[in-house]
Design a protein around this nucleic acid. Sequence first.
DNA 1: CTCATAATGCACGAAACGTGCGTATCGGCA
DNA 2: TGCCGATACGCACGTTTCGTGCATTATGAG
Lengths: 173, 173
Amino acid sequence: MSTLSIDRHDLALLDALQRSGDATNATLGEAVHLSASQVSRRLQRLQEAGLITGYAALLDPAALGLDVMAFAHVVLERHGGVRTEAFEDGVAALPEVLECFSVSGNADYVLRIVAPDLAAFSELMMKRVLRLPGIANIKTDIVLGKVKQTHVLPLEHIARPGRPRRGVRFTVS
Amino acid sequence: MSTLSIDRHDLALLDALQRSGDATNATLGEAVHLSASQVSRRLQRLQEAGLITGYAALLDPAALGLDVMAFAHVVLERHGGVRTEAFEDGVAALPEVLECFSVSGNADYVLRIVAPDLAAFSELMMKRVLRLPGIANIKTDIVLGKVKQTHVLPLEHIARPGRPRRGVRFTVS
DNA sequence: CTCATAATGCACGAAACGTGCGTATCGGCA
DNA sequence: TGCCGATACGCACGTTTCGTGCATTATGAG
């Protein structure tokens, strides 16, 4: 357990890094008004603290031939025993299922699924998803168009006015 | 318009880079059985071809105090005129709305929204989302648990057996 | 088999990284 | 207000990484 104080420099760094994770320390330093060495030190701290979990190359799904995306709303059967584990393990093993969340509302789970085309998507659903254990019902929303898609998390809620002057308090295990 | 051939080395590189975008060329080279210089050249090609759209640091939402995530299913009003633009622009301007897709099915749009807590989420929905123009109805699924979440796109559909021996043909603008 | 094209590894100069260190700034306390 | 410990800072510098030039090898068409 450690405590880490985040100031506006760190927030600016996190924001910049979310958008361009391959920027050099010097470039980041310009944007944040810090020297490259300080940027290096801060990044190391932020990573050790767990705020930065890693780096990734972002690929273009369309360029890779992944033209179909859909959200599947899954309802499980309601027999007393806890059959959710088998379903969840099966979902985790399918690379085309990028996400799976349990949710409130009508469905038990929401899945985000990608596929090369409708034929492949159909086959994926019929032969792999629908055969997962414990499924009672699935309703699928196929994505028709993208209005917005980003991985950039909002940071505005941190360091809101009226709170600690120099740095916000974070607790990490 | 150019044509690019992708071989198994490129696929391995893309796969590795999705998972660890900060790996050095030498490290990647080991995994792919290529020299660092070749990795450098291939990455440059893949980026110019648009397969790699960029790099990003991945942040931990929980560590940043973003504990609430939800999917909002939006139905717009059906008066003849095309009022969708105003709604879409409004959505794009909200940083808490990470994604917005138009979908088939009952709803017109699906939004993925994050917020620090339920109070902030409630306020966001009431004061900003619901006030977007043209909305007839919204149903919200709040995420209760994460079974799986990844940005790693599946690449298995490329280079399927029985197709071009050395490299798959890609066309990029 | 021949040959043109493309891919590969090595080498080397340039760039970026990250630690040490002396200085400056901040925040608490008398 | 002035003092002092702790922290943050930039600079310097050795180390690592990058990416281009080039000679060699592999590939595929005719």
